[in-house]
Design a protein around this nucleic acid. Structure first.
Lengths: 230, 230, 230, 230
DNA sequence: TATGAATGAGTCTTCATTCAT
DNA sequence: AATGAATGAAGACTCATTCAT
């Protein structure tokens, strides 16, 4: 069970911070969080020693402790960051879309998110790891999932109100299924990126879901999954 | 990140073994594996110290090391056990069923498995944790998932050959979606057993999937998900 | 600091025990001692776990504990065995020889002993290791060395009485030097068997010693080191 | 096989370091090495637990691991230190001396070294222990011994070139004998400091050796071992 | 006579955390 | 704002020893 050393990344989020060039190893709090996210996503909380994170960031442990009370505080910061980013992204994706369109766009966002390696895997890894070992994080991530499911459910309900979705559909169950496919597909993709048919799995599901939800409704473009093409 | 102490379970497999009483707290190798599975499933590999497992089993660390070369060997034994059990269970479920029936039955088996707490969560927890930290286990679990997807794909292909499934369906993508819902639903269930609509999520998916796969085919009973009732 | 596994030796002392063929792994106390000597000689006391010795002997630890109260008792048995064997060998070598001859023969015995791998290294290894860690063994080996030095000293004194050795020689110092070369040469030989000139070192010393001790005495054959040829 | 606890020594190198007082029990890397040498010399590698060394140094195990990657790295540091110190001492001893003088001086250095308890026994203890258990250290010490033998051999060869030593002497064998006596005498001295005639043993050998090597050569003062008096 | 199973103390090592500077 | 040095608790693993059979 050894884990390979982390290749010290530069600023992971692309462009260097504008303005004053920070001195040797100096990192802003935000950057430390980004790097911690990378570690936690890859190795989990227990698998990421403070020293490993510090080394990946090119600073000493002391620097981390200067910015964060303890390891859990660092974790909390990363979780908060990821949750906010995810919800922001989802909000962006749906603005002004019909329900079917929104469902396709959100899925698309999740796929991109997972494949572009922003900080993929983070939520899933921590979700699984923290269920029995870190109540606070577990609750935060559970709440995030609840909000996400509620969001999807609302999307569908609103679609029903708008006449885009058949009124007798079970919005809660549909949302649960929707979430499940995305989550399950992501895990399989992380586990086996070369052989798991990531996008087809989600597209297949979406096609079926939308056929089902819009059965007997006036046709819209979005029903026939046009937007998921890369 | 404290984890509660494990309440020492009695012989987990039900009745005490009649006959020869071993030494104080003596446990057979098989029993040790069962208990280790419990721990790994709950706390992950890194979260399960050898001492914790030993205490849960009511033996000392030395006893564990007598039976297993090291912690990884114990892990390997648990993984092998779970993989075999899962595949056996799936085999059982499908014997003599039509494709649609088989897909419903396998889902049913997974749901029961997850809810009855046999040793739920084990595969998912280890799958996520081991991706970057334990190549051997990661490979074993990846192979298991590949086999499972191939199995589902074959089920569908066979269904196509038999005329149960529409011939132009994409068996690979359908299998990937099928796997995804189950996996994703399980995680959400473990994370939020009280609020996640486990069975409805999977049923909703299955109904849609089977409607899609059997479109234009002669109707069978299994299409209308009768068997998923508990 | 890993040590290679011991290749399970058969009966190391050559011929199988006459009479009843012992059953699987059964070993006489004598045989266990021989094997323990091998281990202790190679890896030292601390480096030879009871399990390692047992495995080398093809028995279980329990069997060792049946024959010997504890690990130290086994050690004591090996030390006693080696000390007795060494002193016996030396006694044999000198019987009926003149002092110079005896000194050559004893050296010869030591060289053969070291090179033929009877149980070489044992005394040295244990001597060095036990100085601070095992008073009993240390004393036993110290006594052995004292006896050996006294023996050599007596040999020389007797030689002086007999007129073989010049009377003003310092028998004690000569004995000390004699012992030193043998001991020091053995260590260097064990450490570097391919490159250390084992026999020449001792021969050179012996030649000089005997020239010195017999200075002004009537010449004997033994003075001119004939017997050390292999 | 119990070993007495080490009496925590103060700063072993004499006066306390003036100036900056470090943390409670803080020791410089150099000091840790000195203390480790003491322990290894006395109890060997296996007999010196990291905890024992740490306690002897008045620090915690963690402090040791802060400075040295693992126990073997600490060992390596001690070996390197000792080898360098020994070779330096020998170099010093011979500068500008004739061959016979040099041989006497080096012996003198070894005797002082052993008796003044600088860090005696270290090389011998580790040499014997590491032969089968630590290839790296074994090689380092073997190389040191080879260099030392070569050094003595060169000394003699040079003496031959200069006309101090008889040209038909076997320099290699003489060097081997020289080394052997010193090594063997040291061991016996460590084993039995009260009763082993340390200096006489070596002097006796040296006298004989120099008589032999300078046979037929113009006399020098050094031949008649004046300098070995304490 | 010997084994298989187990114990508990001890060993090497890691890690979260602290703190003087 | 950050570092270097250190701590102490915990973790993986070993080992001498015991004992029922």
């Amino acid at each position: 069970m050894e884990t390979p050393p982390d290749t010290t990344p530069g600023s992971p989020s692309g462009a260097a911070p504008s303005g004053q060039p920070l001195r040797k190893g100096a990192k802003s709090q935000k950057e430390l969080v980004e790097i911690a996210i990378d570690c936690f996503a890859r190795y989990g909380y227990q698998g990421s020693s403070v020293d490993r994170i510090a080394k990946a960031a090119g600073v000493t442990k002391g620097a981390l402790y200067y910015h964060f009370k303890d390891k859990e505080a660092l974790l909390a910061a990363t979780v908060a960051d990821r949750v906010a980013a995810f919800e922001h992204r989802v909000q962006q994706a749906v603005s002004g879309a019909s329900c079917p369109q929104a469902l396709r766009r959100i899925a698309s966002v999740c796929i991109d998110h997972a494949q572009l390696g922003d900080h993929p895997r983070f939520a899933i890894t921590l979700m699984v790891e923290s269920i029995e070992t870190n109540a606070e994080v577990s609750i935060q991530l559970r709440e995030m999932m609840r909000r996400f499911r509620a969001f999807i459910r609302n999307l569908i309900s609103t679609g029903q109100d708008r006449g885009e979705i058949r009124p007798d559909a079970d919005a809660t169950a549909a949302a649960a299924a929707y979430n499940s496919v995305i989550l399950g597909a992501e895990i399989q993709y992380y586990q086996d990126p070369d052989r798991f048919a990531f996008k087809p799995a989600i597209e297949t599901f979406l096609d079926q879901l939308l056929v089902d939800l819009t059965r007997g409704m006036p046709t819209t473009d979005a029903t026939s999954g046009g937007e998921l093409k890369e």
